[in-house]
Design a protein around this nucleic acid. Structure first.
Length: 483
RNA sequence: UCCCAAGUAGCUCAGUGGUAGAGCAGUCGGCUGUUAACCGACUGGUCGGGGGUUCAAGUCCCUCCUUGGGAGCCA
């Protein structure tokens, strides 16, 4: 009977022979007995293999045991016995061990010690084998599953928005071109630019920067929909919060206004955090301890007063703070760091865009909890956001959390055709490039709202990791696509 | 893209003008129902690349590359 380590660790000692497959984390050996910590990825916990050399089981030779080194794969069989040592309830008393794949100790880069995350990023093909990344990617899976469950339970339909898009007016950022034209001597127009009518799709195409516009179309028939797919931004962003390829969840709901939208977003985030707390206990416990150790190394002023798990519990049990942009500016204008000129960008006038330092102050110092900022000046937001009755602001909302910053950006969409056309004009978006988006407002237009949740930013918040490149298996960023 | 810092053994780092070091890992030996085991010995380096200053450069200067932190863009 072959079992996963997560299964084995729930069993009681018995005379039944069990077989476990996995990889060696560490080995401690002496003349008479050897202990092997084995992990198979099913859980962060290791199974302790005990090899009693005196017993002289067939197949467990010195040659085989010499191959049992950190990183090697092993298949072990034996009886589950109560552990004599502390640290584990049960252990596998081995009667046979085979090593399907060795890992030469002279070359294998992972050691049974703490490695820097920077180093592990350089060995992206092996970092899955560490406790940290095992925990992170199990949590990532759990969050993926919980997202689909949340929406499915509430009558939403998952829409696969296209990855290749012909729309270049989405305004969300620089795009990656998709083309099959030859690199050398592509067909040119008279003015010397590339003739994309000769390209694969008969027009210029790019990788999507957002599934929102397409989700809106679906919501106008299916009511409640969401997308969950990869998104691509060709911005030259070199930060710990940006990727060139990241995953985004974008719900879109017909007959829903901004308040409905905020309620959905808040319920959604709390659900996901509660799901992680309930279903990823071991992994979050490990990440929380890791986080606490890192916290100790920080200067006093930057230390957090809650552990990761405490922070997650706090967020799932308390309501988010909701403030308008106007109120946020008032708070910032009158706050101590602004008066003492500690901000790099002083807050003086209504209309400025909130900088990272301002958002951090609001979230980490003033409210000390997630904050929803609403009703931004229309000049600093997108063309599709609904203009408020004051004519100055739009029905937008951003959710800011400690550490990961802006985790959600959403809005009530402009459903009035004439106003949307005027807004597109102001943003210099040619109407013919979004004719289908405008068409939706001609036929049965309704109030509707939605938001985008950056999946990796959610994971940063849930796992306590500080760099977005550590919560995605294969990070893509400028000058970085090795694995 | 801009600002700041860093790049020295497989890993983490010390070395600020005068013969390249430590801890961990690895190898060998010892010891022990061990828990990132422990003890001893040994091995291990184009000091990120290129150029320059100097009798002499890991160290000073220029330049490029990469990484980290911050900023902008945003999720």
């Amino acid at each position: 009977m072959s079992l996963s380590i997560s299964q084995v660790l729930t069993l009681s000692p018995s005379d039944e022979i069990v077989t476990v497959n996995g990889w060696v984390r560490t080995k401690r050996s002496s003349k008479n007995v050897a202990f092997v910590a084995m992990n198979d990825g099913s859980t962060i916990r290791n199974l302790q293999l005990v090899v009693d050399i005196d017993k002289g089981y067939e197949g467990i030779t010195e040659e085989v045991m010499a191959q049992v080194t950190t990183g090697a794969s092993v298949i072990a069989s034996g009886k589950l016995v109560a552990s004599q040592g502390s640290g584990q309830a049960v252990e596998l008393l081995c009667e046979s061990i085979t090593v399907p794949g060795i890992a030469d100790p002279d070359e294998y880069p992972l050691q049974p010690k703490k490695h820097s995350l920077e180093f592990l990023r350089e060995i992206g093909h092996l970092r899955f084998r560490t406790n940290v990344f095992g925990a992170i990617f199990r949590v990532r899976h759990a969050m993926t599953f919980a997202i689909h469950k949340f929406f499915n339970d509430r009558g939403f339909f998952n829409i696969h928005s296209p990855i290749i898009t012909g729309s270049d007016a989405e305004g969300a950022g620089e795009m990656f071109r998709v083309t099959t034209l030859p690199e050398k001597n592509p067909p040119l127009l008279d003015d010397g630019t590339v003739d994309f009518s000769k390209d694969f799709f008969g027009k210029a195409t790019n990788l999507t920067v957002s599934g929102q516009l397409e989700a809106e179309l679906a919501a106008m028939a299916l009511g409640k929909v969401y997308t969950f797919g990869p998104t691509f931004r060709a911005e030259n962003s070199n930060t710990s919060r940006h990727l060139s390829e990241f995953w985004m969840i974008e719900p879109e709901v017909a007959f829903a206004d901004l308040t409905d939208n905020m309620n959905l977003a808040e319920e959604f985030l709390k659900y996901l955090i509660a799901y992680a707390l309930e279903n990823c206990v071991d992994d979050l416990d490990f990440l929380s301890k890791r986080n606490a150790e890192e916290n100790k190394l920080k200067p006093q002023a930057e230390r957090e007063d809650m552990t990761l798990v405490e922070k997650l519990e706090f967020v799932s049990n308390n309501s988010f703070e909701r403030v308008t942009y106007t109120e946020a500016v008032e708070i910032l204008k009158n706050c101590t760091p602004n008066k003492k000129k500690k901000f790099q960008y002083p807050v003086e006038n209504w209309g400025i865009d909130l900088q990272s330092e301002h958002e951090r102050y609001l979230v980490e110092k003033h409210f000390k909890k997630p904050v929803i900022v609403t009703d931004y000046p229309k000049e600093i937001k997108s063309f599709y956001m609904r203009v408020n009755p004051d004519g100055k602001t739009v029905a937008a909302m951003d959710i800011l959390v400690p550490g990961a910053g802006e985790i959600i950006g959403g809005s009530q969409r402009e459903e009035r055709l004439e106003i949307l056309q005027k807004r597109a004009e102001e943003f210099k978006i040619p109407p013919e490039s979004i004719w289908w988006y405008l068409d939706i407002r001609k036929y049965g237009s309704v109030v509707h709202s939605g938001f985008g949740l950056g999946f990796e930013r959610l994971l940063m918040f849930v796992t306590g990791m500080n760099n977005v490149r550590d919560v995605i298996p294969f990070p893509r960023a400028p000058k970085s696509a090795e694995f």
